[in-house]
Design a protein around this nucleic acid. Structure first.
Lengths: 205, 205, 205, 205
DNA sequence: CATGAATGAGTTTTCATTCAT
DNA sequence: TATGAATGAAAACTCATTCAT
């Protein structure tokens, strides 16, 4: 009998080698030879565990999305109030780990590739809907409906934008500052609302 | 109008074919054959007008950055007050033309490639510094210095993030809503400041 | 019946899987992976029972030739007169079983490969000599020697040609018609002879 | 301007190299490297003129079929009576050139591959129908309809079968003998008919 | 006996680039 | 200027074969 459980190990190895390779050379310049060398295995092995290059790339994206999802769930664990949940979401999406250039590189590469792969499009779509609905849902307890939608859209866009800059800037972005910017956006959204409600209350008197 | 030389015409043709190709196939899957076919010329022609493939890609990015720069300058023309200038900048960066999927695709592809090309890095860096300094400068007349920096960072990140979603979403994003989100962010930044100043004044009474 | 050892069982499985694979994909596109999957065993198993791929292919051809030989012997059993023997041979070589597309496919594939494998060449040679000599011998009792040789050659060629058409034609050949054609050829050979002899006799009168 | 008319020359070179390669190594063992080497060009050139390997193989078969068709037409030129036409067809299909082992090898390889390629199936089908209808048509002037059909089937099968033996036999077949065999079959078909008709006439008296 | 993990050579294919015309 | 023929290196992918378990 051959060694058991190799599949899980090898797939993980290869996916991690893929992420590193994308960071180092860019999505358009990675080759299976490079990936398998980095993983310390032969080229043939890739096709033993993945149908083809695309399959490996999809698995890599799925892994990144899944890691993110799990991280978010862990941050959300034990939260009760909407405020707590949003704070948790912000911590999750602003985790320093996610701002490591290697990770951001890979994300950016995948985003750029999404429009050209139906599978990636589907994956990205599912995760994006989940992300949006988590934010939207939390905001709906704090803001009127139409504002909740806009707030959710704004906050995920802001986070994505800050991520990108991390990848594009020479000197690694101060991720603390990124956090402050998002935090401030969040607080302004809430304050602006309370102010409005107050105004309305006064108006009704 | 002066008669354009072949060089100008061919370069433009090729750069436009490159943008379209990137949109259609993704940065990693374009070939010179594809580009020259789309431009309606022979494969060999590319090397008459560009040193190599990389040169063409850089020229393409330079063209995109230049178009953006010119568009921004035109929007800024005639503006006087900081408020006017910021409104103009927002109009420039939220121009529907810039939200066309083809354009966003190309931008996203270039962003993803920036970390792996020194030339692109330099181009991107120049553009980014210019963009940031324009925003920062305008904000500095309206906000205290440390807030201006953060505001500028926030607003460009928000714009980039909204762009990305355009590229990633199946159903084209409501670019009107993008505008509203940015506009609201901008207004909140200003209001928050005035409120703070007001609060402080009251406190001193 | 003696209990079959694993070896016998496995070899049979693999040889049958090989024939099916050749029929389905063609000689040039079969892989050991495909064959072992079709046989329901692991890839490694092939090398337990066969030296290498070529060995398996030779064994497969040997099996087909052997099946044919046995079938011919069974048809010949109990025959006495040359006429009976030839009728029996025709029945044997025109057995519907041999006209099944799967079988013909495999035969055709092997024929095409014969010129490039010394082992196959030898196998084919032995079989062909046996076939020819059986026919020739039977014909020699019915026809003058030089005619017997030609008759044998003609009849085996005719049979092979009809086989081929089975493999090449979309709509399965009417094997009944094939039988009639061969039968007619056979009868004409005999009649032509008797007529000639008769003619000669008449001439001598 | 590049050299003109290269396409025709290169395609011919490559197709001929393919035929030779098939003869030398067998259909399952030819590689594009081998073919291009034999043609004296680089490997890349193959994909300049043919979509892929399959495309080259199809072109090769098409060329062989086309050569055969032209040869047949030339043999038929100027023939008037059905007898003349059939004699011409036999000469065409029994041309010594067609019995060269290299040619027969290639034909056999293609026949073996036909069942696994829709394109080849279509090609083969068209040519076969043409061949059959030419023979059938000629025979219909000489034999009753149902006999003409069988005669045509028989004669093409006989020819194919004789071809095959050429490829399978060590010592090159005496193609003269092949000719005699076919000629004899043809004559017997005609004689048998005249005899039958005669018999019928007698019967009606 | 049997597995399937692993290898590495070999195959098809793509592609940027050069060059004669 | 422009063509597209030609190259050769490198890519993705396949596969027979070996081997530890």
């Amino acid at each position: 009998m051959p060694k058991l459980g190799m599949e899980t190990i090898r797939k993980k190895q290869l996916i991690e080698a893929t992420i590193t390779s994308i960071h180092e050379c860019g999505f358009s310049d990675i080759s299976l030879r490079m990936i398998s060398q980095k993983a310390g295995v032969s080229t043939g092995i890739v096709h033993h565990y993945f149908r083809d290059k695309n399959d490996l790339l999809q698995a890599t994206m799925r892994k990144m999305l899944e890691d993110l999802r799990i991280s978010v769930l862990q941050h959300l664990k034990g939260t009760l109030s909407p405020e707590e949940r949003i704070e948790a979401l912000l911590s999750a999406y602003l985790d320093p780990k996610l701002f490591e250039p290697e990770t951001v590189s890979a994300w950016l590469a995948f985003w750029a590739h999404v429009p050209h792969s139906d599978r990636l499009k589907r994956l990205q779509h599912v995760y994006e809907k989940r992300q949006m609905s988590t934010f939207r849902h939390a905001f709906k307890s704090l803001l009127p409906h139409e504002k909740a939608e806009k707030a959710a859209r704004g906050i995920v866009a802001l986070i994505d934008g800050l991520w990108i800059r991390t990848s594009l800037q020479e000197n690694v972005i101060d991720y603390e500052q990124a956090h402050e910017i998002v935090q401030q956006y969040y607080e302004m959204l809430l304050y602006q609302n309370s102010k409005t409600k107050l105004g309305r209350k006064n108006a009704t008197c």
